[in-house]
């Protein structure tokens, strides 16, 4: 395999793994639900996106054609992440989960 492609694949894999891990650390250690929402919706989505990209490059460099399935999964994840974050935030607001001390402003009631 082309050594340049190898470097790119290894870099993307490590970047994706690091972002996935950072998203999970954020989920585990941030203080309240609304702050925890930030980690998974972005860091994890981006991490999985990077891993998918490395998979696409890997199979392309091996000469097995360009992977469309990976691209479809990535697009799907990027489209659904904000939707599930939004609907979870609405549910949390409805239940009235506690917010951390020092949060400015309040979730509204309708």
């Amino acid at each position: 395999m082309n050594p340049f492609a190898e470097y790119v694949i290894a870099f993307l894999l490590l970047l994706g793994g690091a972002f996935t891990l950072i998203g999970a650390i954020g989920l585990a250690r941030l203080p309240d639900f609304f702050t925890r929402l930030h980690g998974p919706t972005k860091a994890t989505t981006l991490g999985v996106g990077a891993i998918m990209l490395s998979s696409v490059i890997y199979f392309t460099a091996r000469g097995e054609g360009i992977g469309i399935s990976e691209v479809l999964i990535t697009v799907f994840l990027f489209m659904t992440a904000p939707v599930s974050a939004n609907i979870l935030a609405k549910a949390a607001m409805h239940i009235g989960v506690n917010t951390m001390e020092g949060t400015e402003g309040k979730p509204w009631e309708q």
Partner: peptide, 11 residues
């Protein structure tokens, strides 16, 4: 807004 880091749209 939800995808760009630092902000999540709630409602």
């Amino acid at each position: 807004i939800s995808l760009t880091p630092g902000t999540v749209s709630v409602d």
